[in-house]
Design a binder for these strands. Sequence first.
DNA 1: TCGCCTATCACCTTTGAATCGG
DNA 2: ACCGATTCAAAGGTGATAGGCG
Length: 466
Amino acid sequence: MQSIRDLKANFSGPPPTSMAANPDAYLQGNIRMTLDDNELWRSFHGIGTEMIITKPGRRMFPHCKISLSGLIPCAKYILLVDMVPEDGFRYKWNKEKWEVAGKAEPQPPCRTYLHPDSPAPGSHWMKQSISFLKLKLTNNTLDQHGHIILHSMHRYHPRFHVVQADDLFSVRWSVFQTFTFPETSFTAVTAYQNTKITKLKIDHNPFAKGFRDEGTSKKSRRASKNPASLEKRAKTSDLLNDDSKEEHSPDFCQSTFDGYEGDDGELPRRKEEDAVKDERFSPWGAEREPSARTDSPAAVDTRDLYNAEQLVPAPASYQPYRVHGYGKSPSPSSSSAGGTGGSGRSSFESRVPDVATVPDHESTKSRSNEAALPHGGLPPPGPQDYTGVLNMSMAQAGKPGVIGHHIYGPYGAEQPLGQWSGPGPAQYPPPHHLTHDYTSQAVHHGYHHGNVAEWSQYPLFSYSCW
DNA sequence: TCGCCTATCACCTTTGAATCGG
DNA sequence: ACCGATTCAAAGGTGATAGGCG
């Protein structure tokens, strides 16, 4: 899992370098998030997770379930989840594998799911697993229930935010850290495409028990009524029987993420090997191959897409954080020595700042520079969902020694709306920008850019679970 | 014709109120 | 009166399916 270290440590403590050397010195920076049911997530990820989205909203399965540690027991926190596009493409399922089908659709209104327990003290969050069971996904852009709106046939991954705040209204003044887990990425679909995923869901989701083969469920009767379904079921079975050979299956193209490719030769540690396996044989391999990306119809610069879709502005200087914090490099959770391989959990300690800083001249310059780039132009305002949305951004004085960790409203006097449509693409750069040593790079860049004022925006949508 | 979306279905789990017994 | 265990029905989640739409 990847995470991003809260910058607050930079303000309240010694220089970043020393902090890195003494991580225990600042509790704030020691928040650790673990993905529960990691094995299940991985089994889905290895095939290519799909999540059904429906108009009334559909729960995720597996659902997001995490564990937290390192929080201040008596301090209150708010937990949020949002979904961010994995890339700038639309996909289609063709001949047992996913193919790029063109440029991604404009990003639907960005919403954030607030955990219903929020706000709650750190002790509450740490005493047990935190489940986002009731989070629902929809493809209805006019949804009034607060479900997270996604596009079908697009790839996303959930992003978890931990915000230290006494209440929702103080969120804007609060620090928050963001975590992502590579294995939780998925394709939003209105109907399952990959029969292996269907089978896996049926096998593991209690609500789908009625579709399991075991016993003489009425499903059999139902299926027997329709020869076509019989055929389909047979096909499913065949496919599943071939699971043992799946690594050689045509739909399991080798991934060539740069972050991993370099290691292809030798993988001394077994854990790492296992961890990377999912990526290597993910059905996404072909599409995510750098060359494929370049040549794909979408030879579209994803940065443009994110500019328009995400509205999470981030200057060029911010890019490295996101690149390393989120990219498809080997999952740090699984490759880390303290790994969670056998624990069935993926864990990640926040390392990289994911907190935007108050823009200063430097950042302004940076933005200007980026705007001058071929793909760095400011996008038109995207379809932000402002209704009931607690839009906010985190602003932070990036200069060393400056105690500033505020979150400014997007339309506050401090920050004209125009600035909110800045170059967001930095958050989701193409995989080929990944460097080999993801973790160390992330840390390095995070601190390296500490002097640069940066912005980010997290539109928070909370009424979905109140 | 094809790919995707949606309404509907039967089956199942979850949930909470009602009931019962100690 | 209180508490815990059990029962039961309603609510809601699931994938399958057929048909609609562009």
